[in-house]
Write a protein that binds this DNA or RNA. Sequence first.
DNA 1: CATGTCTGTTTGAACACTCAACCAGTTGGG
DNA 2: CCCAACTGGTTGAGTGTTCAAACAGACATG
Lengths: 164, 164
Amino acid sequence: MSTSATIQPVTRWLSAEEQRAWLAWLGATELLMGSLDAQLQRDAGFPHAYYAILAQLSHAPDRTLRMSDLAGVVNASPSRLSHAVGKLEERGWVTRSPSTCDKRSTMCTLTDAGFDVLAEQAPGHVEAVRKHLFDALTPEQVGQLEQICNAVLDGLDPSGSCRR
Amino acid sequence: MSTSATIQPVTRWLSAEEQRAWLAWLGATELLMGSLDAQLQRDAGFPHAYYAILAQLSHAPDRTLRMSDLAGVVNASPSRLSHAVGKLEERGWVTRSPSTCDKRSTMCTLTDAGFDVLAEQAPGHVEAVRKHLFDALTPEQVGQLEQICNAVLDGLDPSGSCRR
DNA sequence: CATGTCTGTTTGAACACTCAACCAGTTGGG
DNA sequence: CCCAACTGGTTGAGTGTTCAAACAGACATG
């Protein structure tokens, strides 16, 4: 062993190809999410994070989810979710009720008014997702994208809370 | 013409595969950017958007870029960039000066202190990007990711400002 | 050379998110 | 039992982003 390279490793910079991929990913994610946020803000008056909360609740049994489970499926911190649900509750789209089995937990339920708002906004939102993402990709690329994102999720989200 | 389907099209919902890809993309982007933001906030005291500004300036001739050009390469709105550069200027990492050729424009320059901060934070940041993204992907997937993101960018960013 | 329009940038208010601190309920040993 | 450690959730302060409005300089058209 003649060098210290293995003991004090220097930074492994990105290769030219990795740099291109990284800049493209940054641009695509920021512009895509920015575009979806702008569309929802304009048409519905709330950001994509709020839409995700309503959408996940609408698929849950009794349209109800425990706060921490809801936080898991929408990739939100407890604090962020608490603030967001507070706003949604003010507008009458969800309600909060204490859980009966574990008195620490809070259950969050989508109201009929919330369901109506979601039903009203879903077509426009889905159309935007399709237009900006799936219309730009071949069917093979959709499969590749899913595999790539799941590989990234495996490293970041060991519990796998956002994959069904 | 017997139906109105072609005149009043119904929503084309996402297929099962598209839904899986969409949820995976949402999870991967949010968790990855969240993780990078947290790492930079903890180690450097500023978010990824600020890092991007410093990094892009460091590659520019004279470490200087016009505000609107800088906004283009970091995918920021003019307003967002103006606020962010204001904060960076307070900390002494960039300076603003009026452009000589077009008196409407403002030139933004990375200071030596700003360069030092960037040099200090770059290894940790690159390591985080590598760890959470590229270490999870095969070389083929890196290429696929670049093509996918560029396809998305073609639809969202006609001017191509974030691809050199 | 006047005037309307467009471009580049900044500003302030409204809003969303983060972080750290906190409170209440639960759990598992002494 | 009792108490410490942990879990689920909320809160408020601080910070970043968005949106609409404003403003100055450039440009073009009559």
